[in-house]
Design a protein around this nucleic acid. Structure first.
Lengths: 214, 214
DNA sequence: CTTGATACTGTATATATTTACAGTATATGA
DNA sequence: TCATATACTGTAAATATATACAGTATCAAG
């Protein structure tokens, strides 16, 4: 459903679940949750789990003991989470001035078959905003990005302009570059390369939408 | 304890446990082990676990469901641990009358981290047509589908109607089901469950777009 | 040749775990 | 003011799960 933020209590519960998986090796049961938080009823834990599932940060597998799994959202919902996978780093908000793949920007790492995409992706970038809506790139989508400093007209690029990272369609005529949104509610960005610096961080080679809104 | 080498069968069991933890997110039960290996008795799994514990490659926590944890030894006991992951079948055009996951419909298999999506995907379905355009699901996109016969109003479903498989938004009022496109150029499909058969093949839980058009 | 490990079938049971149902109370947005 | 989300207590039941006990059969080692 909607991507609401977690309450303080829900964050505590989610943190405990993450911690349990990390340190114990498997997810906690309702009783173990209740014991840790002092609930006198396993249903208190159940309710919290339902709420967390509803907000998309965990998944519950019906009928399976300890059937709690974390989702992509769960990691971005907590201040600190340990990364223990290899392949594709997921980059969220890029801190001003820092390289895209700086440690501080990496939220998580996912294994995704690179053959899925038209070009080999180097990282996943969480898209913010609706400026590329008509290209089917929505707020919260993960853009698979291939690192390269060169772009051709019409390609969707990850560009850095004034320490801000943005996703737009690339159009260049001589010294003049236009970064085109795919949404009439947004204005194109004009850059004169003689006056302003534009860095191409990479090309969008695919999109992953981690959830479908209802 | 005794640090002997594992038998071939024991290696298979250990590999499955590792793989299960990696891909599912928690260890398997005795029954799940038995089902995978074709044991008719959960005690076969139990015996293997005891043997593996005795050889020091796993630890079993008494009385806790799924209480299997790996040890430092477990990794060195397997040739290629960690890298494996259950691949997702990619289903292209579904032949009329055949099950979605019939061999003839499977084009390829991709390894995709299931944690990327809000619910566990069981397969990827290549979407044809533009009827879901405004939901950001384009022609050629891969819909990550979670198999389930039940759907709630507003969810995006994979439905089978008259041997045709289609992706639409689900809306039900009593006997009346409406399959809603997300594109004003298409008409909603009305089904009277008393007159027509509708099978829900699964729920859309995410989208992968393998390429970006320029 | 006997012992122990391996690799299972088959049955049974205690208990661990999920999960529904029925409440209470507070806060918040429409 | 009504509906909804949060945050719980308390009870109960269905079922998922661990695990004991009783076997069968093969194989290698002492």
């Amino acid at each position: 459903m909607s991507e609401q933020s977690l309450t303080k209590r829900q964050k505590e519960v989610l943190a405990f679940i993450c911690d349990h998986i990390e340190s114990v090796g498997f997810p906690p049961t309702r009783n173990e949750l209740s014991k840790h938080f002092g609930f006198r009823s396993p249903n208190a834990a159940e309710s919290h789990l339902r709420a967390l599932q509803h907000k998309g940060v965990i998944r519950i597998e019906a009928g399976r003991s300890r059937g709690i799994t974390l989702t992509a959202l769960s990691h971005s919902s907590l201040p600190s989470s340990g990364a223990l996978r290899m392949p594709l780093p997921l980059v969220g908000r890029v801190a001003a001035g820092s390289p895209v793949l700086a440690q501080e920007n990496i939220e998580h790492e996912y294994r995704v078959d690179p053959l899925l995409f038209s070009a080999r992706p180097d990282y996943l970038l969480r898209v913010e905003g609706h400026s590329m809506r008509d290209a089917g790139i929505f707020d919260g989508d993960l853009l698979a990005v291939h690192r390269t400093p060169e772009a051709s007209n019409g390609q969707i690029v990850v560009a850095r302009l004034d320490d801000e990272v943005t996703v737009k369609r690339f159009e260049r005529k001589g010294h003049q570059v236009t970064l085109l949104p795919e949404n009439p509610q947004f204005q194109p960005i004009q850059i004169d390369l003689r006056r302003q610096e534009l860095v191409i961080e990479g090309l969008g080679v695919g999109v992953i939408r981690p959830r479908l809104e209802s």
